[in-house]
């Protein structure tokens, strides 16, 4: 495997357009956690603000940022954070295009994205990174600082601001509409007597 590409958040367009599916990336800087309930609350607020014609009150500025789909395990005394691997990204697909339209530049999770999300990444120039599902302890060692930002009542589903160092990721969807999941199967599938 080729050497990893080291990148920093917030992500700018110049960095993003260079990333291609299959690239190994080490991410540095700030990422925000967010999963099902947090996404629902953000999108509800955006819709409410649009209806009532005021500026939405968001837990963080979306432009250039990266959301990590994760709900960490409890933190043992003396540790920075508990084990914190990625959760299944597909559950966030109904919300993701709305956030990408507002400037979110990257998402991190595990598993496939929907056609709509992949199209939105192409349109608004954003990328989807895969972290290894189940590698929760290994990933937690790359998290150096944790702050609760919003929705503390949601427990593991709250939004945390994480400072990460060399967070190991793989680019699964790039700004060109490519999908590593599809390409991977094409490359490694062996046709047998079963065929399709």
């Amino acid at each position: 495997m080729v050497n990893p590409i080291r990148i920093e958040t917030p992500l700018d367009e110049e960095t993003i357009i260079k990333l291609k599916i299959g690239d190994k990336v080490l991410l540095n800087g700030i990422v925000y956690t967010g999963r099902d309930q947090a996404h629902k609350r953000i999108v509800d607020e955006l819709e409410k603000a649009a209806r009532e014609n005021h500026k939405p009150k968001l837990p963080f500025v979306l432009e250039g940022q990266v959301i990590y789909y994760a709900g960490p395990a409890p933190c043992r005394p003396g540790m920075v954070i508990g084990p914190a691997g990625p959760t299944t990204s597909g559950r966030m697909d109904p919300y993701t295009p709305i956030l990408l339209k507002r400037g979110l530049k990257g998402t991190i999770g595990k598993g496939r994205r929907s056609k709509d999300t992949i199209e939105a990444m192409r349109k608004y120039k954003a990328v989807y990174f895969v972290a290894v599902g189940g590698a929760a302890v290994l990933i937690s060692k790359r998290i150096k600082r944790v702050e609760t930002v919003a929705y503390e009542d949601l427990g593991p589903e709250a939004i945390y601001r994480l400072q990460v160092e060399d967070f190991p990721l793989i680019v699964a969807n790039d700004v060109y509409g490519n999908d590593l999941f599809d390409e991977g199967i094409k490359k490694y599938r062996k046709v047998t007597q079963q065929g399709e």
Binding site: R76, G82, A84
Partner: peptide, 28 residues
């Protein structure tokens, strides 16, 4: 697949750390 190898290596390293430090291997 080289990516596949990398993923399997991360999994084994993770599970070794989990056992050693008595931490849950997955947050879920």
């Amino acid at each position: 697949s080289p990516t596949g190898k990398e993923v399997l290596e991360q999994i084994l390293e993770n599970d070794r750390l989990a056992k050693e430090e008595k931490l849950p291997m997955c947050q879920d």
